[in-house]
Design a protein around this nucleic acid. Structure first.
Length: 134
RNA sequence: CAAGUAGACCGGGUGGCCGCUCGCUUUUUAAGCGGGAGGAAAGUCCGAGCUCCCCCGGGAAGUAUGGUGUGUACCGCCCAGAGGGGUGACCCUAUGGAAAGUGCCACAGAAACACACCGCCAGCGCCGGCUAUUUAGGUAGCCACUGCCGGCAAGGGUGAAAUGGUGAGGUAAGAGCUCACCAGCGGCCGGGUGACCGGUCGGCUGGGUAAACCCCAUCCGGAGCAAGGCCAAAUAGGGGGACUAAAGGGACGCCCGGCCUGUCCCUGGGUUGGCCGCUUGACCCUGGUGGUAACAUCAGGGCUAGAUAGAUGGUCACCGCUCCAGAACCUGGAGUACAGAACUCGGCUUACAGGUUUACUUGGCCU
RNA sequence: GCCCCCAUCGUCUAGAGGCCUAGGACACCGGCCUUUCAAGCCGGCAACAGCGAUUCGAAUUCGCUUGGGGGCA
């Protein structure tokens, strides 16, 4: 039973690791060595991670706004990434710029997808449609 | 009806699609059902619970509070009292001591603490003028100037502030010197647990500042859930230094005494996982009773977020509200407050579109 | 989440209740000097983060707000 529970927990953690960058140590190499793409709303940095899956992290500094605003920006970014399939094997960090605080969801969606297609990090079947859209 | 005062409450709603997190259940790598931000979650300004540290005592120092009584687990909070403001409902107040001491009070002014510049008045002296008297010298009186020695603190002027205020008497001139009223102080009597209130009598009263030092009274050991505990993993159990009539130990620091310890300090390295703490609590709602009130108590009912880089959402449609434009009661556009739990409570402070409701005050009109 | 600190001309600062209409240095502007520039000399511009309270009087004392900075196992 205990072994079983432990296994489930480890599995859940693996599931989480699939999606998010968490620790400070995971951010540092991406920010330092990763490729750089940016526009008015967000800055994107990406680095190949030698894993079979992709992870992302979000940085929203105090310059963007107060706690309520920062939370909203993070939610909107997360929503965009949830609906966008990523190419596997990359660590990606998104940094929100102050303009993102007043942007609408549709704009953020367009900008993030634009960056990902520039970097060719979208999963293949989605890529062409997005290019056409942008 | 208008203007206003105080309190309580709400803080967008409904539905579709796609998600997140926690709990429970089952046919368990999934599905179903249920819960899922605030009145301030904020600032971290106070007070507690809880946890750890040898919190043993004394002293010095320091912090905070400040009428009094009460309420409360506690408080720097609340209620009642007093003072001030308002026609009023009601509001505001960092509300002990300035005859314990020290300091400061610029400029102005005589003087900012024990003073007298101008001034008013009495006495004496000198010089001058006038009047009366006288032959003259002189004598007497009055007036003005000035000097000396006193009395006074009313008036003038300065200032933020000048030794109770107004009126009458009184006096050489004045002055609580005397009287009336008011303000203040003290005693006595009555009421109240008390702050205090009311009455009465007395003598006559001498600045401000304590959010200046200070005095008095009360309070305070320190740190904070990144507290602290358990499990797993990982790595050197390394290097240097100090030590037995001395060293170290007070979870900020000082002094003294006690007590405890064989170790203590510096440097270097490793782990940055999981679980517990972690949500039922001085809890919330309704009603009764007691109390001037804050609040207490009894009965019934309820369970109301627990994330861990941090969930509580995204989007679409319709409705509500505000503003603008057309227009004529519909249409279009823009917007929809302050703000996001992180151990938990009680307060305080600050931010807040709009709305609901209760009680009360003042004024106007009608019956 | 918790615990602290700071705010004065464009910049660095002085100031400790009245002498502050806030001083100094650098910078900037104008003039003198010089063939010109620099240096030097003379003059000028320019600030108490905001709101309230205490006081006769606040840059200074107290409270709240705003902005900035630092620390933690």
């Amino acid at each position: 039973m205990i072994i079983n529970a432990l296994a489930i927990k480890l599995f859940k953690e693996a599931m989480k690791a699939e999606k998010y960058l968490t620790r400070k140590g995971q951010y540092a190499p991406v920010l330092k060595q990763g490729g750089y793409w940016a526009n008015r709303l967000v800055v994107m940095k990406a680095l190949a991670n030698e894993l079979k899956l992709s992870r992302y992290g979000l940085v929203v500094s105090k310059r963007v706004g107060k706690a309520v605003v920062r939370n909203r920006v993070k939610r909107q970014l997360r929503e965009v990434l949830r609906q966008t399939p990523l190419k596997s094997g990359w660590d990606i960090v998104f940094i929100a710029r102050p303009a993102a605080a007043t942007a609408k969801y549709a704009d953020i969606d367009k900008m993030v997808r634009g960056l990902l297609s520039q970097a060719q990090l979208l999963a293949k079947d989605n890529e062409e449609a997005c290019l056409r859209l942008s």
